[in-house]
Amino acid sequence: MIDALEAVDVTKVYNQGKLSEVFPVIDVSLKIQGGSMVVLKGPSGSGKTTLLAMLGCHVKPNRGEVILNGKKVSKLPEKFMNAHKRDHIGFIFQQFQLIPDLCVMDNIMLPLLPMGIGRSRQIRLAEKQLEFLDLLHRKQFKVRNLSGGEQQRVAIARALVNHPNIILADEPTAHLDSRLTDFFLKRMKQLKESGHTIVMASHDPLVYDNPDIDQVVEMKDGRIVS
């Protein structure tokens, strides 16, 4: 099994040099095996989301490296980093980050638009994900009219639509009840079984105590504590 994702001594500083300077992540190193399911656990403000954002190439670390499938991606120019992100990473945001005025299908197809994929193929790919997440019947609904659980499934479908091998999820069960959390974890297990690497930031015991989790990384004050 190869190292799918690795952080080497990464540090992130916000508002550097200002009075409001904060260090959400300090000198963190982490290796995530390909095909495993990992949880970043810790209280609010522990740096889980920022570490996940750096692993997902959304945020560049101020120091250190993020290595994706053996390539140092965090120092790459934006265009190349984005190419890696598009090809390998699907990200599920805590607040879903969907466009509320667009319908479910259009939201899911968004990552495909700059890839030069024709409309009919986009539709096929999106419908496949909706079927997997049991949401096909809502495909023409505007996202603003969906429940929290349904919106989360749209966010998952969007993260999966371009077939990434790594899925990063930030507090994926924060808005879900126990039934939907169970549904979500089952889908993640299925993805893991099909070879995907999954990293979730969560402080939900239903997630980090789940028997299918391979590794739990605990964070506090921007550092890994266990």
Binding site: I89, Q97, L98, L110, P114
Partner: peptide, 16 residues
């Protein structure tokens, strides 16, 4: 602004 952030987060380049 939020929409632009979302598009960037899902892999859209600045020039796109």
């Amino acid at each position: 602004k939020r929409e632009i952030g979302i598009l960037k987060a899902i892999g859209w380049d600045t020039d796109v």
